[in-house]
Design a protein around this nucleic acid. Structure first.
Lengths: 205, 205
DNA sequence: GAGCTTTCGCTACGAGTCGTAGCGTAATGG
DNA sequence: CCATTACGCTACGACTCGTAGCGAAAGCTC
């Protein structure tokens, strides 16, 4: 989605409803067809717009799918369940529920794959999807430190590195469980995961 | 790669060197073009074979890339460095080194994305890539139990679930770090990761 | 209202890829 | 020698891509 026209720009304004319709149509097409068989002409037909309209707003399949999938993560929130372990389990379960949806599965990995050769696409993914998730990790750590469950971080640089590490471990594990192992990240799995994450491999046995 | 013709089958045998050339050409094309721009016609030209020959051996782009990428993981081994932590660091560094290669990056995620809608493809990935990695986790756990670093598992069912969990945590974290966060899984990162994995989040600070 | 600007739907188009068919030839075993 | 399979090559229809051009619609400013 490029910069819209909020200010008094001359000319006919864009149909805002079309954006919504196009993104919804994209997700529907992802469910029915998957990434590889999804075509922009098909999406345009589903959304009830002309193919040229779609190309005026998105430069291609990749950007469109990033935006369509990003909206799925809007609902992510950090619940306050009273302890770091419970908070972690709650947010991981939310994340897992989103990833379980077919439109997320087929779309997310495809754009990540393409982002390895497209810096602009990676930046788009980072700002509209990844950062939104990482924010929850930072919130959770701050809250846990306030509770005294985690020691306060003196060095902000070390704190940032640790947060990045935790984020990669949490998001990576759920993604791998869901997409590669193709098993559900259900409550039982999340409990085991949280135990290892917080207590370590040796202590959790 | 489908079943070759080792037994005395009539007719002209397949050129075994062509398989090697095609897979190498596929990896080269992945490096230069990435997944989306890789075409089978181009791979055939690079390998010096006719496009029809390629289609006689692989049913499509997905299967071909799975086989091409799978060979990258052949070199994975579990080093014996004397302790669970050191062994873990060693194998994770190997895994990270493979994932850092562009042909692995662009190819692996793409086929995983497609496998969410193609059971046969997922099975092919599982047997030729994933199981080979998971074996290392099992070896590492057995060795650590022999050393007394981990308690022996009484229930084989629980042991299998734990091994799956560890595998998803290790592989997922490295993949996420490399492909999504787009940062190198270097020695420093691996040390921090291993510490959290073995000791837990609280104890590792 | 007049005039300007931008969007929209539609059609058409060249370019590129896909996967297959058909052909003649090469290589192996019985 | 002959059946059988693999190979290289060419050609093909079908499909998707991304763009161009057109007339009409919808907003703004004067």
């Amino acid at each position: 989605m490029q910069t819209s026209s909020p200010a008094g720009r001359p000319g006919r304004p864009r149909n805002a409803a079309a954006d919504t319709a196009i993104l919804a149509a994209t997700r529907q097409a992802l469910v029915e067809l998957g990434w590889s068989r999804l075509t922009l002409g098909d999406v345009a037909t589903r959304a009830g717009v002309a193919k040229t309209t779609l190309y005026r707003r998105w430069s291609g399949k990749h950007e469109l799918v990033v935006d369509a999938v990003a909206e799925l993560f809007d609902e992510l929130e950090l619940p306050d369940r009273g302890s770091l372990a419970a908070d972690t389990e709650g947010v991981v379960l939310q994340f897992a529920a989103i990833l379980a949806r077919p439109e997320a599965k087929s779309g997310l990995m495809a754009v990540v794959a393409e982002s390895t050769r497209d810096d602009a696409l990676r930046e788009r993914i980072r700002t509209s999807i990844v950062e939104r998730q990482k924010r929850l990790v930072l919130q959770g750590r701050t809250r846990a430190q306030a509770r005294g469950e985690l020691p306060p971080e003196a060095d902000p640089e070390v704190a940032a590195r640790t947060a990045d590490l935790i984020f990669d471990m949490v998001a990576g594990a759920v993604v791998h469980r869901t997409l590669v192992s193709a098993e559900p990240a259900d409550e039982e799995w999340v409990r085991g995961f949280t135990r290892v994450l917080l207590l370590g491999l040796a202590a959790s046995a």
